[in-house]
Design a protein around this nucleic acid. Sequence first.
RNA 1: CGGGGUGUAGCGUAGCCCGGUAUCGCGCCUGCUUUGGGAGCAGGAGGUCGUCAGUUCGAAUCUGGCCACCCCGACCA
Length: 492
Amino acid sequence: MSKNITSKDIDYSKWYNDIVVQADLADHSAVRGCMVIKPHGYAIWEKMQQALDKMFKDTGHVNAYFPLFIPKSLFEAEEKNAEGFAKECAIVTHYRLKADPLNKGKLIVDSDAKLEEELIVRPTSEAIIWNTYKGWIQSYRDLPLLINQWANVVRWEMRTRLFLRTAEFLWQEGHTAHSTEKEAIEEAEKMLNVYADFSENWLAIPVIRGLKTSSERFAGAEETYCIEALMHDGKALQAGTSHFLGQNFAKAFDVKFANKEGKLDYVWATSWGVSTRLMGALIMSHSDDKGLVIPPKLAPTQVVIVPIYKTEEGLEKITEQVNLLMTKLKLKNISVKYDNRDSQRPGWKFAEYELKGIPVRIAIGERDLESGTIEIARRDLLSKEIITINQAEEYIIKLLDEIQNNLFKKALDRTQNMTHIVDSFIQFKKLLDEEPGFILAHWDGSQETEEKIKEETKATIRCIPLNNVKEEGFCIYSGKPSKQRVLFARAY
RNA sequence: CGGGGUGUAGCGUAGCCCGGUAUCGCGCCUGCUUUGGGAGCAGGAGGUCGUCAGUUCGAAUCUGGCCACCCCGACCA
């Protein structure tokens, strides 16, 4: 197979697709809009899951699992949420097939097996979860209820892109119940911070924390918090969301609790999620024209060792050294793979592991055995160095750390360089076309203005940054007074 | 749902205008030589040309229907 990746400067979306497919992350499937996540892609997702899951547990959450199917009557209970998702729901109407009498060997839907009530394939699980919580919560002693689930969901998208938007995707959704509004808001903010922490310290992607405007808010939420990241083509990607749901779902599903005074009140809720979309963020933040670049902390294999030999005896001697080194590295919890396949040549392996984004590559040849050295190459800079094998362990530990930090720093510098402060609509439009990125600009706070700007420029308000400095100014579109800048960008 | 495009070996393609059952590259298999940046040579295997129908002595090629997927828009995380 020829591994020609379209340069990202020539065609960014083609480049993205090439990376996903050629680095063996995922593939289009026989089902429209649905992807197959291949072992290499899934291994990275598993690393993300492990890190996030630990963070959830460390903040007091536990995992559970709720059904894929949601009866229509439950689904429609919270009206705003139901309306928001109505257009993209898959619906189960029948439970049986039968042989087609007119077409031998084919099957048709058995019209006798129509469901009394249709089942919605979950686009999100609030409905079934709140219906369940009703039975779990009676008293303030049952609160807070802090539950997460890892699941698949289905949203029937018209246009899909691998990882970024697929009809079915994998995610986690946290659903919590609290006795006070304050506590629920704190929970929503806490989980936003968990996401931001994960994004910056694991994915090595800097993010802006913010609040969504009412038009971008999750259907059924009082407030939606988000983290927004900037991809290297200047488009924004929402990397995670956390919602303060108020008492909307508690009221819709009649979830009340007795407080300390014995009075009944509706519980306060949150939900929060990140999805396999993070894979897209990872790719579009660090990778290059040679392929994927994986931050060491999420790399299923952090170090690969390639032997270079001429004879069987040579390989044996190299393998002896490699085994010693691997034992040391594994003791330090470094995942290391020794690729001693004889079916591929070293140069082929080098290219392959670059394409797949393995952070560190070691080459050991017969010459190295004499000099007691190894060659170490780092994926982020594509640079190589010769060190003595005695230093290797210490060197690699430091190097993995350095690569992780370097990736974050590069992404941070880029994001900062692509963030502009703008005070006129003319400049706003010019910048979007010539130097796309984040734009901080004044907005009058009206939905109407937001909508007009979107229509004219395709840019949307990504968020109202949480750490915003209050600053008097005038809306770039309407000229009306404004108290703070908001973050605009064209988005995925 | 609108506009555009593609469907030929595992992958990428030529051939189609002007009908005579298929080109090239990568990959695969066998052997030998190789191995410090995607190896070389020799031999070999692999195709109901998306699908259905029509025209014709004969269809990858012409005509019509259908299907699938991709790209661009509207919608969305």
